[in-house]
């Protein structure tokens, strides 16, 4: 069953158009990766889904509800949990406050999140600004999970992290997938992301140009759309 369906989405930043027709589906329990070189519209697509830069044309439907015109907090409450690019926790709150502030009822509780990310459990009373980059990333994911989202969106979740921390985060993502969590993921580590994704959607210049299973994304296609 389709959870998120975006079709022919066009988005502008002021007068300049960034998306020229993005098509994207995510089913229940499915992990979809959004791919493309820098500046092709991956983050803009996510911003449009979350209502931060609303689309001017096209349709975005989530769990049967039309997202057009809804403010970001309403979209989040429908069940979209965003882990934004660059972590972005609330640095002036403690780890616990960061998590509790976003909590909505469901299976993800403080205990569940701290057992997924043990390091957060050890640092509940610490301010988010004192965490390492990897821990902040875990906190950002934990915060999104506390809203008990039906769809988790991860924008560059492992960017700029030490390899060993990346492994922890990918392990957590695989655990979430095994749990049946629907995830839309944007990431530059090809091997990892192809290993976990059920489907890939490739953007170029603000358009969806290819979609299919990770196995069908041949080296030629990778070179054509993703190579530098």
């Amino acid at each position: 069953m389709t959870l998120l369906q975006a079709s022919a989405v066009e988005t502008f930043y002021g007068p300049s158009q960034a998306l020229f027709g993005v098509d994207l589906d995510v089913g229940e329990g499915e992990v979809v990766t959004l791919m493309g070189r820098n500046g092709m519209g991956k983050t803009t697509t996510i911003r449009s889904i979350c209502g931060m830069t609303p689309a001017r044309a096209g349709r975005i439907v989530f769990a049967g509800a039309e997202l057009a015109g809804l403010p970001p907090h309403r979209i989040a409450r429908l069940g979209i949990g965003l882990v934004p690019e660059g972590r972005r926790c609330f640095p002036n709150l403690t780890v616990q406050e960061n998590l509790v502030a976003s909590a909505r009822p469901g299976k993800w509780t403080l205990d569940a999140v701290t057992s997924l990310f043990l390091r957060l459990g050890e640092r509940l009373r610490q301010y988010a600004s004192t965490l390492s980059g990897g821990e902040q990333q875990m906190l950002a994911i934990g915060r999104a999970l506390m809203t008990n989202p039906r769809l988790l969106i991860l924008d560059e979740a492992t960017e700029g992290l030490a390899p060993i921390i990346r492994q922890d985060i990918w392990a957590a993502i695989r655990k979430l997938k095994a749990d049946g969590q629907a995830i839309l993921v944007v990431d530059k580590t090809m091997d990892e992301v192809l290993g976990v994704a059920d489907r890939c959607v490739v953007l170029e210049k603000g358009r969806t140009v290819w979609s299919g299973g990770p196995a069908e994304l041949t080296p030629e296609l990778q070179d054509r759309y993703l190579g530098v």
Partner: peptide
């Protein structure tokens, strides 16, 4: 924006 993204209307 971050607050809105977790579903709270500031």
């Amino acid at each position: 924006t971050r607050v809105a993204a977790i579903g709270i209307r500031p």
